[in-house]
């Protein structure tokens, strides 16, 4: 309802509107720093990356030429890229699987053991705050051929030392497990928060109905943990697919290209092979894979969501 003075057309109303609009404008001005930040550090590099992917730029020279879709066409016939995509999926989906399973198991364990909760939670979460590069080096020293802890243990049993990182496929699995170990604490915390948000009355009702512990887990806990599953799975998938530091510290993507991820391959193409155009095309491919996967996962979890 308008007051008499605020009726449209009156001078007083126009002034008020103007003031309201200025006030709203002031609020909008507050967005500008964030918008500028995102534009400079996200949008500009992203669109610049798309632009570079259509050139043969070497990464530093002032001259280059447009090559159309050549980089993309080369990419689809490059067996190193195909191998790298497979590795990236192992890093992304494999890490997610282990982090989800063990994160959930730890959360369930801690949810029922309040006395040791804070201690175990801290211990499991501790690796998260260590730099992934340092974590990679720690595990490199465990698995190295000469003087590595694992080979020293094998020597105690009179076994021959194994060059763990010399086999590409095995390196990929070790790296994936190192990443899973480092970030399992994040999943644990997410699931723990989810478990604590489930009202006890739901479990009590299920007990009265005679549900076994497994059925209570299957039909009460899991459906109500879907938001935690969604956050954990999407977060870990994206993190695993962008894996870089641990690979650099352990194998540097080797032997050859055997344990490269899309991130390390991009780095190698840009800085070592002087093929920035190809690196940019690979970046766009990685972006597309992550976006498609994230949207599919979001859609999946949206359908499974149960509101309290």
């Amino acid at each position: 309802m308008h007051s008499r003075n605020s009726r449209p057309g009156r001078p007083g109303s126009r002034i008020k509107k103007l003031k309201a609009s200025v006030a709203a404008g002031s609020v909008n001005v507050m967005y500008l720093p964030a918008l500028a930040f995102v534009s400079v550090f996200i949008f500009y590099p992203f669109f610049r990356g798309i632009y570079i992917s259509f050139t043969n730029w070497n990464g530093y020279s002032s001259s280059f030429r447009f090559v159309g879709f050549e980089q993309y066409l080369t990419m689809f016939g490059d067996k190193n890229v195909l191998n790298t995509i497979v590795n990236t999926f192992i890093y992304g989906l494999g890490s997610t699987f282990f982090q989800t399973v063990f994160g959930l198991a730890l959360a369930l364990f801690l949810d029922g053991n309040r006395r040791i909760k804070s201690v175990v939670r801290t211990v499991v979460y501790l690796p998260v705050i260590i730099s992934p590069l340092i974590m990679g080096y720690i595990w490199y020293f465990f698995f190295r051929y000469n003087g590595g802890a694992v080979n020293d243990i094998l020597a105690l049993f009179a076994k021959e030392p194994v060059d763990w990182f010399a086999n590409g496929r095995r390196s990929v699995w070790i790296i994936m497990l190192v990443n899973s170990y480092q970030f399992v604490g994040v999943s644990m915390v997410m699931f723990l928060a989810g478990l604590q948000s489930i009202p006890p009355s739901y479990h009590e009702a299920a007990v009265i109905d005679g549900a076994s512990p497994f059925k209570r887990f299957r039909f009460v806990t899991v459906p109500l943990l879907v938001p935690a599953f969604a956050s954990s799975v999407i977060f870990n998938t994206i993190g695993g697919m962008k894996l870089f530091d641990v690979i650099v510290a352990t194998t540097d993507g080797g032997p050859g290209y055997a344990s490269q991820s899309l991130s390390t391959m991009m780095y190698d193409l840009y800085f070592s092979k002087q093929n920035a155009g190809y690196a940019a095309a690979l970046g766009i491919l990685m972006f597309a894979i992550i976006v498609i996967l994230s949207v599919m996962l979001l859609e999946f979890f949206k359908r499974k969501r149960v509101d309290l």
């Binding site: 070497n58 080797g254 050859g256 290209y257 055997a258 190698d268 070592s272 092979k273």
Partner: peptide, 15 residues
């Protein structure tokens, strides 16, 4: 730019 090609392919060959 060829240096890295020798390094990485050499590793790949040995592997």
């Amino acid at each position: 730019g060829m240096w890295d090609v020798m390094c990485k392919n050499g590793q790949d060959l040995l592997a």
